[in-house]
Every structure is written in C-alpha cells, then in structure tokens.
C-alpha cells in the first residue's frame, strides 16, 4: 500500500492508476459492485429500509474502527476494544438498573472506558509492553469483569428518553445513532489528515526513531492512541445499549477482530504508518454489506467469514503487487 496515506498523494501523470491503488477508491468500487450485483439479484436490496439497516448495523463498528485506525496507524494494535465496550455497556445498564440518574450512569460508563484506555496506554507507552500481548490481557480481563459485574445476566431497564435520543429519525429516516457515528468518523477522519497533532500518529507509525529525533513526544502520543480507542469503544457501548435497549454480557464480544479485519481491508497497515479512517469505515461498510447481501439472498450468513477472510487476503496481496510495481 504505497499511496493509501493521504499525506502521500498520487504522483502526477499517473493519476488514474494511482487512484485505483488508493485503497479507499478500490473498496468503494467493490462496494458499488457488490451493491449492483445484489440489486440485480434481489428486489429488496435497493430499498431505503434495507440500506438504512445496513447503515445502522455499521454504526457501532465504525465508531470502534475510527479508534482502531488511529492505533494501527500509530504502529500499535488494540484487541481490548470489544471487551471495553462490554464493560462500559454493562456498567451503564447496571447503574441505570439500580435506579441512578442517566448522568451518573454515563459518568460511570465513561470512567470505566477511560480506566481501560489509561491502563492500556500507560503499560504500552511508558512501561514498554508489547501492545498485542498487553491488550490480549486487558481483553481477557475486561470480558471477565463483564461477567463478574453482570453475573451473566442482561440488563434491560434502559430509560425511554435515552433510547429515543439515539433512535429518533429526524433526517432521511436514519436514526440519530447513524448520524453520531458518521459525524464522529468524519470529524476524526478530517483531523487525522489535517490537524498538526493528529498527523503525528503517521510520523509515530512511520518511524518511531525518526519521530523521536524530530522532537515528537512519542510516548505521550502512543498513550493517547489507546485512550482515544478506549473512549471510542465507550461511545460505541453507549450507542449499542441505546439501540438494543439492553446490555448483554457478550456485548462487543469478537468485535475487535471484525473491526481489525475491516480496518486492514480498508488500507490500515498492521505495521503502522498507513491507512485512513475513511478506509477503515469503508471496510466496515463492505463487510456489513456482504453480510446483508447473504441474508437477503437467503444464502447462509455463515459464509460471511469466508467472504471477509478472502477479501482480507486479496487486500494484502494487492499491497504486495503494488509494492513490486512501484519500486524502481
């Protein structure tokens, strides 16, 4: 993936070829192809009800993907986002279930997410632990905490006002949670390309040694990547709890791997320095679209993993092909 970073724009004279090499464009094309095929095969695909369902299904994963994209670009990885979501969702629902006011429940939820983010960030950035191993540990701990807190029960006494705040459909029949997701993704996407501070994640992921030599406080930056990812997982927990009207012990379970898959398909490199939030979001959209197509074509949804895995392999293969084509 040589041209995926918007900081490194395509070369002059070769623009259309470079444009195809842009992962975001390639995924967008794939989305359009899948959509076109699906709309030919099924009259139900191109209906507003179906498409808005796809967008709703994407919303939560897109929020998490934005955080994970930042972590991946910074050269790290975070397996704990799904568990953080679980802890935050259960914490929110338990506090509400106990009759506490919404602001108190949201505060507890936020603190829980922040605690995980700070723990991840501190241990990775300042104690120098390997992010894969450390977040594997916090993922395990987080899921266990969910069961300790919930004792395996779901909590469904969510106030109506909170639910309708996210589920109301003021614009184009899309619920607010879709707009929240799109807004957060777009805002972070723009900041990551333009904002001087956010752009530093690309420097950190490109070369930590060079970033240190350039006077960048790489530890604080690394720390912040995990805090941001955890806070976005917290937001995802709030959104999913409002959407479903309840929190389950398995909320967010397995989500980290789905989102990592989507982000890598969308052009984020697990070696850091490359990718965009837009790409990660499009990756989420593509995977959810495939899921949707399998459902409306009455094919088994169990094939979704096969499709996602094959696209992932295709994505990394094109990386290698592009690399060979561009080098010298």
């Amino acid at each position: 993936m040589t041209d995926s970073s918007a900081l490194a724009r395509p070369p002059a004279g070769l623009r259309w070829k470079a444009l195809i090499r842009q992962r975001e464009v390639a995924i967008l094309l794939l989305i359009l192809i899948v959509g076109a095929v699906a709309s030919v095969l099924s009259p139900f695909f191109l209906t507003w009800a179906n498409l808005s369902n796809v967008l709703i299904a994407c919303s939560v994963e897109m929020i998490v993907a934005a955080g994970l994209a930042i972590v991946l670009i910074s050269g790290g990885i975070d397996l704990s986002v799904g568990s953080i979501m679980g802890v935050c969702a259960i914490a929110l629902a338990i506090v509400l279930d106990a009759g506490a006011p919404l602001w108190a429940a949201l505060s507890v939820c936020l603190l829980a997410g922040l605690a995980f983010g700070v723990a991840n960030g501190t241990l990775i950035a300042y104690a120098g632990l390997n992010p894969l191993v450390l977040t594997l540990a916090t993922m395990t701990i987080g899921r266990s905490v969910v069961f300790i807190l919930s004792q395996g029960y779901s909590f469904a006494s969510i106030p109506q006002g909170f639910k309708s705040a996210f589920n109301a459909t003021p614009l184009f029949g899309l619920p607010n949670l879709v707009w929240v997701s799109l807004g957060v993704t777009a805002a972070l996407g723009v900041l990551l390309q333009r904002n001087v501070w956010f752009r530093r994640f690309y420097f950190l992921g490109g070369s930590e040694v060079a970033a240190i030599r350039a006077g960048i406080d790489t530890r604080r930056l690394k720390f912040m990547a995990y805090v941001i990812a955890a806070l976005l997982a917290t937001l995802a927990a709030i959104v999913t709890t409002a959407r479903l009207g309840s929190a389950f012990p398995n909320t967010g379970s397995g989500l980290e791997l789905r989102v990592i898959t989507a982000a890598v398909i969308g052009g984020c490199s697990i070696y850091g320095g490359k990718g965009t939030i837009l790409g990660a979001a499009l990756g989420v959209l593509l995977l959810n679209l495939i899921n949707n197509v399998l459902v409306i074509l009455s094919l088994s949804v169990y094939w979704q993993g096969v499709a996602a895995g094959l696209i992932l392999i295709l994505a990394i293969l094109t990386d290698i092909a592009n690399r060979r084509g561009v080098r010298r």
């Binding site: 900081l7 490194a8 690309y202 070369s207 960048i216």
Partner: peptide, 29 residues
Amino acid sequence: ALFDNLDVAANIFAGQERVAPGWRRLLGF
C-alpha cells in the same frame, strides 16, 4: 531517519509542522 510512509514535505517538517492561518488555525490544521 526518514519516514518511509510519508512524502517529502512531511519528512522535512516532521515535528515542526506549520499551522495554517485564518479559521484553520482554530482547528490546528
């Protein structure tokens, strides 16, 4: 000590990037 993933401008200005004037300054662009 180059940033392989970035273009020439990003490499030269790494760590000391200029902030744009006007309204973009508010957003740290």
